[in-house]
Design a protein around this nucleic acid. Structure first.
Lengths: 209, 209
DNA sequence: TGAATATACGGACTTTAGTCCGTATACGTC
DNA sequence: GACGTATACGGACTAAAGTCCGTATATTCA
């Protein structure tokens, strides 16, 4: 397991420091792979596409696929990168209550609602990114972001064990759990959002003195 | 995915109704497989043992292994069966607060603490039973039991969306999450128990009118 | 006890993830 | 533009999960 997120290895002159820049053929292949994977996933469904399929469709060797994306979950993460970034931007600098400015409990509720909607919108891809290898979810770069965000809000809210509460909330929002709620139990998304909103608010209530 | 729990197929005259009883050679093989798997898992660690290893050690064909246990997670579930049953018995008819008699919030807190200790005590095996195939955890027979128990307690506590709160609590206590807390973050079990106890109590608080 | 039949056995086979390494190519340098 | 080196390529290879089906055996019933 190599875990190379899309943000690594890319040519980011201002950020990569002394790291050697990505070779032109490598960049071209990364693009080809992402396009092919996106197309295949859309057409056949995530579950029905193997890594060989992706490699073949991209006109690239399997080794290239794995060198660039580490494993299957890394490929999924790379495809999700853009959508993820939008949510992250909204959190960091968008309007409240998702962005800065609202009280912690409101921001937390806004986050879990938005995150649930995000997971739901990309269920299979998120599932792939979280479950391709055991523990994949907790090692994702973006997971660190969501976790820190929740942790800081819960800290600001003054509750005990803010990090564990953050983990609890995110654990409830794994693709596996959301898929079960949505597909097996056929719960409508708005109902789920309301419920998870309420749960988040409960967990943000400081203990009475 | 066949999902045959250890409790199925076994010869339980009073419960199996019209189902045909298990053949003698089948029962013998089940025993041999469980013993071999237990031994191998103990000696080499769960991760290092393949299904071929188990089949070979049990002196049994691979087909037999899969017919009896469905898949790898089913084998793990069968090995956990006994320990699980103890906890289930304590819940159904043991002394309070785990057993009947205590207020719902206390029972819920007692349950999550006990369940966390159970998961921790058998981390790798529980992980295997939950993650061998995607969605395995939610399809486990015992998961239904834990879920119903939490759901009933939360209903009794008068909170909204008791089932979703039950799912949230159990999602926080997946082997994957517990392993992360215990092994990656090196959190001591008692601290985790205290924290999850508090979280459960928070989720059992009915909304103020 | 001796068919008849349902059930179980076992291992070859398929599929897929992920690794390895000899070969090829892009890039910096003269 | 040629050269040397670091980087990347690709596909054969390995390992492990899970399937399939022809064969064998337990059980039942006469």
């Amino acid at each position: 397991m190599h875990r190379v997120t899309a943000a690594d290895r890319r040519d980011l002159p201002l950020l990569t420091g002394g790291a050697p820049r990505e070779r032109a053929d490598a960049a071209r292949n990364r693009t080809k792979v992402l396009a092919a994977a996106d197309e295949l996933f859309r057409r056949n469904g995530v579950a029905a596409v193997s890594m060989d399929d992706v490699a073949a469709a991209a006109g690239v060797g399997k080794g290239t696929l794995y060198r660039r994306f580490g494993d299957k979950s890394g490929l999924a993460a790379a495809l999700l990168d853009e959508r993820e970034s939008e949510l992250q931007a909204a959190i960091l600098s968008g309007p409240p209550p998702l962005g800065p400015g609202a009280p912690p409990a409101d921001r937390l509720a806004a986050f879990v609602s938005a995150y649930l909607a995000y997971v739901d919108a990309h269920l299979d891809l998120v599932a792939l990114s979280q479950t391709a290898s055991p523990g994949a979810r907790l090692r994702t770069g973006s997971h660190g972001f969501w976790r820190q965000h929740c942790g800081l809000l819960l800290t600001a809210a003054g509750v005990p064990d803010p990090d564990l509460r953050a983990d609890t909330l995110l654990a409830a929002l794994t693709a596996e759990q959301v898929r079960h709620w949505r597909r097996d139990e056929r719960r409508p998304l708005p109902a789920l959002i309301d419920a998870i909103d309420a749960i988040a608010r409960r967990l943000a209530v400081p203990p009475s003195p």
